[in-house]
């Protein structure tokens, strides 16, 4: 059941990314370029996503068990505002600005087969593997 839900929501998520314009690096940089010709589209993507997401997450938060897999509902409970959160996000934002893509759109864009995206995804996976390696050492 979980596998089917994950596959279908992954597919839907991918369609949403394609339709939204988040998969197009030129459009993402156009949003991040507030000093130039600013394209506010991505604010609308966030607005649409959060508008719909709010309804579902509000329902999910009220439940003790998950609706389809019948497991205890455990949404993230970490509330700490630490250096890792901020420095990690700043590093991510810098990479997002350079490339114009973030992790989801990068995976979706793999299907379009550009060398730049393949290079980005390999480096991203290497960065994630490096993180796991460093965590295991500690």
């Amino acid at each position: 059941m979980l596998i089917v839900i994950a596959l279908l929501t992954g597919l839907l998520f991918g369609f949403g990314l394609l339709l939204s314009g988040m998969v197009n690096p030129a459009k993402v940089q156009g949003f991040l370029d507030i000093a130039g010709q600013w394209d506010p589209s991505l604010a609308f993507v966030m607005g649409g996503a959060i508008g719909v997401g709010l309804v579902f997450f509000t329902l999910a938060k009220k439940r003790d068990t998950t609706l389809a897999t019948h497991e205890p509902m455990r949404l993230p409970g970490n509330n700490s505002l630490d250096r890792r959160l901020i420095l990690g996000s700043v590093a991510f934002g810098a990479g997002w600005g350079i490339a114009g893509i973030c992790p989801g759109p990068a995976l979706v864009a793999l299907g379009a087969g550009s060398l730049q995206v393949i290079a980005f995804v390999i480096a991203m996976l290497a960065g994630m593997a490096l993180f796991s390696l460093l965590q295991r050492k500690h």
Binding site: R84, L85, L87, G88, S89, V90, A91, F92, G93, A94, G95, W96, I98, A99, C102, P103, A106, A119, F120, V121, I122, A123, M124, L125, A126, G127, M128, A129, L130, F131, S132
Partner: peptide, 11 residues
């Protein structure tokens, strides 16, 4: 960029 995104998002 990919390296920054991979490491940054995990941290």
């Amino acid at each position: 960029a990919g390296l920054l995104v991979g490491l940054g998002t995990r941290y």
